[in-house]
Simulated assay, not measured.
Amino acid sequence: MTALTIKIGTRGSALALWQAEWVRSLLLANHPELLVELVIIKTQGDKILDVPLAKVGGKGLFVKELEEALLAKEIDLAVHSMKDMPALLPQGLALTAILEREDPRDVLLSSRYTSLHALPQQATVGSSSLRRQSQLLHLRPDLQIVSLRGNVNTRINKLINEPFDAIVLAAAGVKRLQLTQYVVEYLDPQQIIPANGQGAIGIESREDDQRLLALLAPLNHQPTWLCVRAERAFLATLEGGCQVPIAGHATLNGQQLHLLGRIASLDGQEMITLSTQGPAEDPVSLGVALAHSLLEQGGQRILQQIGLG
């Protein structure tokens, strides 16, 4: 009897390959009889590296080609960083499993300074995220935020070889690639709220592929699933992405979900932050409710000023 072959679609960066290999190892641990192949697909986000994400379409640039391959049945599943996934998925595709979350925080990396507050006046900080930019400028209006694109290794090389005083990355990717030697501070998630889905790895597949759904079921980490569902509902209600300074982070305490959300102006001068909590079995309603509360408390005005409301 021929073994079932599962094709995993992934981007080709070191971090994306690490994530896809992790999914492969989990699939094989649960189903040793499978043959699991990696299919590397280059996305627009990998090709366009000299323009800030916000100016070329935001998060969807890292997933569109993978989703096209799924719909064409060239691959069986796609592995994504959840923070890169748009809030809405194409018809016929579904988020079918989310793995246990790594550290969701942002980290400050520097070869010269010991913390965000130790950076000198007018320090140059590299970041590709408007969410990070607005929150950093709220704490340190003097900072010079410079757009920084590329994979984790590329950005760390730029920190070392170019005139950056510091850069900010997601802790999860730095830890997964064992590149923590330049980390000088794990940023407080109450001050620099992480991106929706940050630290979590998601598996996307065709929603009618029942055999694959059964194979993937053991990989889903329910506490992470609930938190990320709340964060994504929050994001979807605000219709946000990389090009919007929106942050949302959920934590689970027993049967209660706690969700912290923020909308900020690009310069960090205006910032609205609210939190809510509710029963874990209804994460979507929690995310939607917090989004509406933020819009009513002034978030709508901020998004309109940015040109996105």
Rank of each mutant, 00 (worst) to 15 (best):
69 A>V: 08
72 A>G: 05
77 L>I: 13
60 G>Y: 03
75 I>W: 05
65 E>L: 04
63 V>N: 06
93 L>M: 06
70 L>T: 04
88 L>P: 01
72 A>P: 03
91 Q>F: 06
72 A>M: 10
96 T>R: 08
69 A>F: 07
53 L>E: 01
71 L>P: 05
53 L>K: 00
93 L>G: 02
60 G>M: 06
79 V>Y: 04
67 E>W: 13
93 L>H: 02
83 K>W: 08
87 A>V: 11
64 K>G: 04
95 L>V: 05
56 V>E: 00
96 T>N: 09
90 P>H: 06
78 A>C: 11
68 E>Q: 13
85 M>R: 11
57 G>L: 03
83 K>H: 13
75 I>P: 05
60 G>D: 08
68 E>D: 13
85 M>C: 14
67 E>Q: 14
89 L>R: 07
97 A>Q: 08
62 F>R: 06
73 K>S: 15
57 G>W: 01
88 L>C: 07
97 A>G: 10
81 S>M: 12
97 A>V: 11
91 Q>N: 11
84 D>G: 12
82 M>V: 12
95 L>H: 02
95 L>F: 01
72 A>R: 11
59 K>M: 03
54 A>V: 00
97 A>N: 09
89 L>F: 08
91 Q>D: 13
96 T>C: 11
88 L>Q: 12
55 K>P: 00
75 I>C: 11
65 E>Y: 00
96 T>M: 08
77 L>S: 09
69 A>E: 12
67 E>N: 13
73 K>Q: 15
64 K>C: 07
92 G>W: 06
68 E>L: 10
87 A>W: 12
77 L>W: 10
61 L>Q: 09
66 L>G: 10
82 M>F: 13
63 V>L: 12
58 G>C: 05
70 L>E: 05
94 A>M: 09
81 S>E: 13
68 E>H: 07
95 L>G: 01
89 L>D: 04
83 K>M: 08
65 E>F: 01
70 L>D: 05
83 K>S: 14
62 F>P: 01
72 A>S: 14
77 L>N: 09
55 K>S: 02
64 K>S: 14
87 A>Y: 11
60 G>L: 05
52 P>Q: 01
62 F>D: 03
57 G>Y: 00
62 F>A: 14
70 L>A: 07
95 L>D: 02
75 I>L: 12
92 G>Q: 05
54 A>M: 00
76 D>A: 09
66 L>H: 15
89 L>Q: 04
67 E>A: 11
97 A>D: 10
57 G>N: 02
61 L>A: 10
77 L>F: 10
72 A>I: 03
57 G>T: 01
73 K>N: 15
67 E>Y: 13
65 E>A: 11
91 Q>T: 14
81 S>N: 15
69 A>P: 07
95 L>Y: 00
79 V>D: 07
96 T>I: 07
80 H>Y: 15
